[in-house]
């Protein structure tokens, strides 16, 4: 089983696909769940406190807006954990969207800087292209080492 970072980082479809192929999706939903179920904090809606943008300084300098650093505080550790990544470019917003394109640019850059297998592909614009899109993702996930192989 490989830990697969997905982009868009909150894509339910990608997370589900990764899981179906026996791998662990690294999605922001898990991070948010952890945040909101942490009873020691009360900073709704996602329990991000002023400390989180400071944690985000690990990934971006202080000149970078707090919205980027706050998001990176959630997403950065996922990238650090990643053993593989799937990046889907130009998806419609309901496929997944973190909201801030500066964060998108930064997280994709950090992923690409890692020495891990990465599949980069564009979201299919037509139905005819959809099977190929799915096939490529399936082939990539198949190619990743499973638990026993590791």
């Amino acid at each position: 089983m490989a830990k697969v970072f997905i982009y868009p980082v909150n894509s339910l479809i990608l997370a589900d696909l990764v899981e179906r192929f026996g791998h662990k999706p690294l999605a922001v939903m898990n991070q948010v769940r952890e945040k909101v179920t942490n009873i020691s904090l009360d900073s709704p809606p996602v329990n991000i406190t002023p400390e989180d943008p400071k944690v985000g300084l690990r990934y971006a300098a202080v000149e970078v807006p707090p919205g980027v650093r706050g998001r990176m505080a959630l997403i950065g550790p996922l990238i650090e954990d990643a053993e593989a990544a799937i990046i889907v470019e130009a998806p419609p917003v309901n496929f997944g969207c973190v909201g801030c394109n500066r964060t998108n640019e930064l997280m994709k850059y950090i992923v690409r800087s890692k020495d891990i297998p990465i599949l980069e592909l564009r979201y299919p614009e037509t139905e005819e292209n959809a099977p190929e899109f799915m096939y490529k993702i399936a082939a990539f996930l198949e190619s990743l080492p499973r638990e026993e192989e590791k």
Partner: peptide, 14 residues
């Protein structure tokens, strides 16, 4: 907003 909930300021707004 552009996502003030990710910036740690939402409780101050509220």
């Amino acid at each position: 907003s552009c996502g003030s909930e990710y910036s740690g300021v939402q409780p101050e707004f509220e």
